[in-house]
C-alpha cells in the first residue's frame, strides 16, 4: 500500500497538468503523530503534500458535494479507499453528484489503524510514529514499540469485505485480496443476544459521554442535508442539551438516516472526541439491509437502494 502514494502523485500530476480535474481531494500529513487531514490539491506544486498511510481514517467522499463541483467542464478527483468509493457511488445514486463530474482514484486498502488502541499501549504522549509497510514504529518520551498494523486495525477495517473500490476511473495499485468472513456481524449478534434491559443499558452506557458535538455527523459523507434535524428549531425535533433522552434520540435518528446507505467506513468513530463507538447503531442497520434486502451500499451505480424502491418481495411481516 505504501507504494500506492507514488502512483497517486503521478496520477494527480497528470490530471492537474492536462486540466482534466480542477482539484484533487486527498490526504495530507497532520500536525501531530498518527494524524492526517483532508486536502484539496489544485496545483502540481502541491501534489507533494499528498500522503497515504495507515492513518487515513476519514472519508473523502464527505468533501464532494453538489455545492463544490467545478462549474466548468472540469472534474473533481478523489483519492478513494474501498469505503470512500462506495460513498461516492452513494452520492451518485442519490443524485447528489453526477458520475461524469468525479474522477475516482481508487486505492486498494488494507485497513486503517485505531489510534486509540495504539495510544492505550503508551503511558505518555506519543511523539512520533512511522510506518514501514505493515509495521508501525511508535515512539513516546518513555518507550518505543514496533507494532504490526494488523494487530491495531480499526474494528470496521477488520470486518471490511470491500477493500477495493467497486467503481473507479483508475487504480493506484494492484487490488488486494478481499476478506471472506464467516461471521460478518459478531458485534451486532453479541448485543442481540442480551435481554432488552441489558441492551438498553448497553446503549445508555455507550452514549453517556456524548457531548453533542456532532462530529460523527459532520464526518459522515451521508449527512449532506442543508439543515440537519438536530439543528432545526422550527419544529425542534430533538432537545439540544445533555439530557440522556435527547442524546439517545439523536443517536437513534442519526443512525436511522444512514439505513441502507452506510458503508461502515468508520469516519464517525474516527471523528468522535469521546471515543464512542457509534457504529453499534449503524451496524445493526447494515446487518438488516444485508439480511432483509441482500443490500450493501455503494456497490452498484444502477441498483436503487432498498428504502428507495418498492418490491412485492419486500419483507412486510411487521405490518399488522
Amino acid at each position: 500500500m505504501d507504494t500506492c502514494i507514488e502512483k497517486i502523485k503521478a496520477i494527480c500530476t497528470d490530471l492537474l497538468a492536462n486540466g482534466e480535474v480542477e482539484k484533487v481531494i486527498g490526504f495530507a500529513g497532520g500536525s501531530i503523530p498518527m494524524a492526517t487531514r483532508p486536502i484539496a490539491v489544485t496545483s502540481e506544486a502541491d501534489v507533494e503534500k499528498l500522503v497515504f498511510n495507515a492513518f487515513c481514517g476519514l472519508n473523502l467522499a464527505n468533501y464532494v458535494s453538489k455545492n463544490n463541483l467545478p462549474k466548468n467542464g472540469a472534474k473533481i478527483a478523489v483519492v478513494a479507499k474501498g469505503c470512500d468509493a462506495r460513498n461516492l457511488v452513494t452520492h451518485m445514486v442519490e443524485n447528489q453528484v453526477p458520475r461524469e463530474k468525479v474522477f475516482i482514484i481508487g486505492v486498494p486498502c488494507t485497513g486503517m489503524v485505531d489510534k486509540r488502541m495504539i495510544a492505550q499501549r503508551f503511558e505518555d504522549e506519543i511523539t512520533q510514529c512511522t510506518q514501514d509497510g505493515d509495521t508501525l514504529t511508535v515512539t513516546s518520551a518513555l518507550q518505543q514499540e514496533v507494532i504490526a498494523k494488523k494487530d491495531v486495525l480499526r474494528h470496521n477495517c477488520q470486518y471490511c469485505t470491500h477493500r477495493n473500490p467497486p467503481v473507479y476511473d483508475v487504480m493506484s495499485g494492484d487490488p488486494v485480496e478481499e476478506q471472506i468472513l464467516d461471521q460478518p456481524f459478531p458485534d451486532v449478534d453479541h448485543i442481540a443476544s442480551m435481554d432488552p434491559e441489558t441492551r438498553w443499558d448497553h446503549f445508555a452506557e455507550l452514549t453517556k459521554n456524548c457531548i453533542r458535538c456532532y462530529a460523527c455527523r459532520n464526518a459522515c459523507p451521508l449527512c449532506y442535508c442543508p439543515t440537519c434535524f438536530v439543528d432545526e428549531s422550527s419544529p425542534q425535533w430533538v432537545g439540544k442539551g445533555q439530557d440522556k433522552t435527547d442524546i439517545t434520540t439523536f443517536h437513534f435518528l442519526r443512525a436511522f438516516h444512514c439505513a441502507g446507505r452506510c458503508t461502515d467506513c468508520g469516519a464517525c468513530v474516527e471523528a468522535c472526541p469521546m471515543g464512542i463507538n457509534v457504529r453499534d447503531f449503524t451496524r445493526k442497520l447494515n446487518k438488516d439491509a444485508l439480511d432483509l434486502f441482500g443490500w450493501e451500499a455503494g456497490m452498484d451505480l444502477d441498483r436503487r437502494p432498498p428504502l428507495d424502491v418498492y418490491s412485492p418481495d419486500d419483507p412486510d411481516d411487521f405490518i399488522k
Binding site: 432488552p196 438498553w200 443499558d201 439505513a259 442497520l285 432483509l292 399488522k320
Partner: peptide
C-alpha cells in the same frame, strides 16, 4: 428496519406498531 433498530436498542416491540389502514 426502524423497528428492528429500536428493538435492538432495548425498546419493547409491543410499543411500536405498523399498520396499513
Amino acid at each position: 428496519m426502524m423497528g428492528n433498530l429500536l428493538e435492538h436498542m432495548g425498546v419493547d416491540r409491543d410499543r411500536l406498531h405498523f399498520s396499513w389502514i
